[in-house]
């Protein structure tokens, strides 16, 4: 069975992209993996005390975000799996692709208002991952495919 991986943070802007990934998985009869990547590097620049295990707190939040995505997929007849990992975005994606033998990677391209990555970053990452793995990569914007990297 084909495997599709789509990282998500669960915000409003990512919902159309989640829906498109669910639709593609349904059409191809593929196994869908939602991935949440915990990144607490924003805490490094703060002077105030961080007395809490924020990685655990945000991972818990990530699980919840993915539970919402799974529920969304289930409503459309797709059973999705949830993966929560922490680390650097590109490194985690590469590790998960390798671990789960992913066939298709679906990345949501940055929204003008709320995106945290840039278009240049995602296209460069797509090319790097495409060259490294036998992988189809789709970049989505508001649910539409705007860039495709073919094997």
């Amino acid at each position: 069975m084909k495997k599709i991986l789509t990282p998500t943070r669960g915000g409003e802007a990512s919902l159309p992209n989640q829906d498109r990934a669910i639709q593609i998985a349904k059409e191809q009869g593929a196994e869908l993996y939602f991935l949440y990547i915990t990144d607490v590097s924003f805490l490094d620049r703060l002077a105030s005390p961080v007395l809490i295990d924020m990685e655990a707190e945000i991972s818990e939040m990530g699980e919840f975000v993915l539970a919402i995505a799974q529920e969304r997929a289930a409503k459309q007849g797709v059973e999705a799996k949830a993966l929560v990992h922490s680390g650097v975005f590109s490194e985690v994606i590469a590790a998960v692709i390798e671990e789960h033998a992913v066939d298709t990677l679906i990345l949501g391209s940055p929204d003008e208002q709320t995106g945290i990555t840039t278009w240049e970053y995602l296209t460069r990452l797509s090319e790097e991952l495409g060259e490294r793995f036998d992988l189809e990569i789709l970049l989505l914007s508001k649910g539409e495919v705007v860039y495709e990297y073919q094997i």
Binding site: T8, R9, E12, F42, M54
Partner: peptide, 8 residues
């Protein structure tokens, strides 16, 4: 920082 982790 936390909000951006939840896509908001």
């Amino acid at each position: 920082g936390i909000a951006s982790q939840a896509g908001s």
